[in-house]
Amino acid sequence: MDPDAPSLFEPDESSRPLADRMRPTSLDDVVGQDHLLAADAPIGRMVAERRLVSMILWGPPGCGKTTIARLLADATDLVFAPLSATFSGVGDLRKVFAAAARRREAGQGTLLFVDEVHRFNRAQQDSFLPYVED
Protein backbone atom coordinates (compact mmCIF):
# COMPACT_ATOMS: atom_id res chain seq x y z
CA MET A 1 0.00 0.00 0.00
CA ASP A 2 1.37 3.42 -1.02
CA PRO A 3 1.64 5.71 2.08
CA ASP A 4 1.32 8.81 -0.15
CA ALA A 5 -1.95 7.64 -1.73
CA PRO A 6 -5.05 9.62 -0.76
CA SER A 7 -7.07 8.03 2.02
CA LEU A 8 -10.61 6.90 1.40
CA PHE A 9 -11.51 7.61 5.02
CA GLU A 10 -9.94 10.98 5.77
CA PRO A 11 -11.18 14.07 3.95
CA ASP A 12 -8.63 15.76 1.75
CA GLU A 13 -8.41 19.47 0.97
CA SER A 14 -10.27 19.09 -2.35
CA SER A 15 -13.36 17.69 -0.62
CA ARG A 16 -14.01 21.02 1.14
CA PRO A 17 -16.28 23.45 -0.72
CA LEU A 18 -14.42 25.98 -2.87
CA ALA A 19 -15.81 28.92 -0.88
CA ASP A 20 -14.42 27.39 2.30
CA ARG A 21 -11.01 26.79 0.74
CA MET A 22 -10.86 30.38 -0.57
CA ARG A 23 -12.10 32.03 2.63
CA PRO A 24 -9.66 34.62 4.07
CA THR A 25 -7.59 33.34 6.98
CA SER A 26 -6.62 36.75 8.38
CA LEU A 27 -8.09 40.24 8.37
CA ASP A 28 -5.31 41.29 5.98
CA ASP A 29 -6.71 38.79 3.44
CA VAL A 30 -10.19 40.41 3.40
CA VAL A 31 -10.77 42.31 0.16
CA GLY A 32 -12.95 45.40 -0.22
CA GLN A 33 -13.37 46.44 3.41
CA ASP A 34 -10.35 48.71 3.93
CA HIS A 35 -12.66 51.54 5.04
CA LEU A 36 -13.47 49.35 8.09
CA LEU A 37 -10.49 47.05 8.56
CA ALA A 38 -7.42 49.15 7.68
CA ALA A 39 -5.11 50.07 10.56
CA ASP A 40 -6.53 53.62 10.70
CA ALA A 41 -10.17 52.54 10.14
CA PRO A 42 -12.70 51.99 12.95
CA ILE A 43 -12.50 48.19 13.25
CA GLY A 44 -8.76 48.17 12.53
CA ARG A 45 -8.21 50.51 15.48
CA MET A 46 -10.38 48.35 17.73
CA VAL A 47 -8.36 45.26 16.78
CA ALA A 48 -5.08 47.11 17.43
CA GLU A 49 -6.34 48.08 20.89
CA ARG A 50 -7.84 44.59 21.36
CA ARG A 51 -11.13 46.19 22.46
CA LEU A 52 -14.08 45.36 20.25
CA VAL A 53 -17.45 47.02 20.78
CA SER A 54 -20.91 45.82 19.80
CA MET A 55 -21.47 46.23 16.10
CA ILE A 56 -23.80 45.23 13.32
CA LEU A 57 -22.31 43.85 10.12
CA TRP A 58 -24.76 44.40 7.30
CA GLY A 59 -24.70 43.14 3.74
CA PRO A 60 -26.06 40.56 1.33
CA PRO A 61 -25.56 36.83 1.90
CA GLY A 62 -22.06 35.67 1.07
CA CYS A 63 -20.31 39.05 1.42
CA GLY A 64 -18.14 37.91 4.36
CA LYS A 65 -19.92 39.02 7.55
CA THR A 66 -19.41 35.71 9.35
CA THR A 67 -15.85 35.38 8.06
CA ILE A 68 -14.97 38.86 9.31
CA ALA A 69 -16.51 38.09 12.70
CA ARG A 70 -14.48 34.86 12.98
CA LEU A 71 -11.32 36.70 12.02
CA LEU A 72 -12.04 39.45 14.55
CA ALA A 73 -12.36 36.82 17.27
CA ASP A 74 -9.07 35.24 16.18
CA ALA A 75 -7.27 38.59 16.02
CA THR A 76 -8.36 39.54 19.53
CA ASP A 77 -8.08 36.08 21.15
CA LEU A 78 -11.81 35.81 21.81
CA VAL A 79 -13.88 32.64 21.65
CA PHE A 80 -16.15 32.80 18.60
CA ALA A 81 -19.73 31.90 19.60
CA PRO A 82 -22.03 31.81 16.56
CA LEU A 83 -25.79 31.73 16.93
CA SER A 84 -28.51 31.76 14.30
CA ALA A 85 -31.63 33.73 15.16
CA THR A 86 -33.48 31.58 12.65
CA PHE A 87 -32.92 28.42 14.70
CA SER A 88 -32.47 29.77 18.26
CA GLY A 89 -34.65 30.98 21.09
CA VAL A 90 -34.24 32.61 24.48
CA GLY A 91 -33.09 29.30 26.00
CA ASP A 92 -30.23 29.12 23.51
CA LEU A 93 -29.32 32.72 24.30
CA ARG A 94 -29.21 31.96 28.02
CA LYS A 95 -26.84 29.04 27.39
CA VAL A 96 -24.52 31.22 25.29
CA PHE A 97 -24.59 34.02 27.87
CA ALA A 98 -23.87 31.56 30.72
CA ALA A 99 -20.94 30.03 28.83
CA ALA A 100 -19.59 33.51 28.07
CA ALA A 101 -19.89 34.46 31.76
CA ARG A 102 -17.92 31.34 32.78
CA ARG A 103 -15.23 32.16 30.24
CA ARG A 104 -15.11 35.76 31.44
CA GLU A 105 -14.53 34.59 35.03
CA ALA A 106 -11.60 32.54 33.71
CA GLY A 107 -10.19 35.58 31.89
CA GLN A 108 -11.35 34.57 28.39
CA GLY A 109 -13.58 36.85 26.34
CA THR A 110 -16.32 35.87 23.89
CA LEU A 111 -17.33 37.29 20.54
CA LEU A 112 -21.02 36.48 20.11
CA PHE A 113 -22.05 36.48 16.46
CA VAL A 114 -25.82 36.42 15.93
CA ASP A 115 -26.72 35.71 12.34
CA GLU A 116 -30.08 37.06 11.16
CA VAL A 117 -30.57 38.99 14.44
CA HIS A 118 -33.53 40.86 12.91
CA ARG A 119 -35.49 37.58 13.02
CA PHE A 120 -35.62 37.67 16.84
CA ASN A 121 -38.85 39.01 18.27
CA ARG A 122 -38.90 41.99 20.64
CA ALA A 123 -38.63 39.87 23.82
CA GLN A 124 -35.68 37.93 22.41
CA GLN A 125 -33.95 41.16 21.39
CA ASP A 126 -34.59 42.65 24.84
CA SER A 127 -32.89 39.64 26.47
CA PHE A 128 -29.61 40.94 24.99
CA LEU A 129 -29.73 44.31 26.76
CA PRO A 130 -28.22 43.42 30.15
CA TYR A 131 -25.36 41.54 28.46
CA VAL A 132 -24.64 44.24 25.90
CA GLU A 133 -24.66 46.87 28.65
CA ASP A 134 -22.32 44.74 30.77
Rank of each mutant, 00 (worst) to 15 (best):
M1W: 13
Q108W: 14
D74T: 15
A98N: 07
R122G: 02
I56W: 07
R23N: 10
A39Q: 13
L57R: 01
G59Y: 05
A5E: 09
S15D: 13
N121Y: 03
K95I: 15
M46A: 11
T76F: 07
I56D: 02
S26L: 01
L8T: 09
P24F: 04
T67P: 05
D28I: 03
A99V: 10
I43N: 04
D29S: 11
L37V: 04
A106C: 11
P6Y: 08
F9V: 12
L18Q: 14
M1H: 14
T86S: 15
D126W: 03
A41F: 02
A98L: 12
G91I: 05
A123G: 04
M55V: 12
P6I: 07
T110P: 06
M1S: 14
D34Y: 11
T67E: 04
D92R: 05
A48S: 08
C63S: 15
R51P: 10
A100Q: 03
E105D: 13
E133I: 04
F97P: 11
V79K: 12
P17S: 05
A39T: 13
T110M: 10
A41G: 00
R104G: 13
V47N: 04
T76P: 00
V53F: 14
T86E: 06
A85Q: 06
H35Q: 12
D92A: 04
A73D: 01
V47Q: 05
P42N: 09
P61E: 03
V114T: 07
G91F: 01
L78R: 14
T66K: 07
L83E: 05
V132D: 01
D2Q: 00
D34C: 10
A98H: 13
A123N: 11
R21V: 06
S127H: 08
G107M: 08
S127Y: 01
L129S: 01
P82T: 08
V96R: 03
M22P: 11
H118T: 01
L111Y: 06
D28W: 06
R23T: 01
H118V: 03
G44A: 10
Q33G: 13
P24R: 00
L112N: 05
A81H: 13
H118E: 09
F120A: 03
V30R: 07
V30G: 01
D115G: 00
V53G: 15
A75M: 02
K65R: 06
L78P: 10
G59C: 04
E116V: 08
V90N: 13
R122S: 12
S54K: 10
T86K: 13
P3G: 03
A48D: 00
G59H: 05
G44Q: 11
Q124E: 11
T25R: 15
I68W: 02
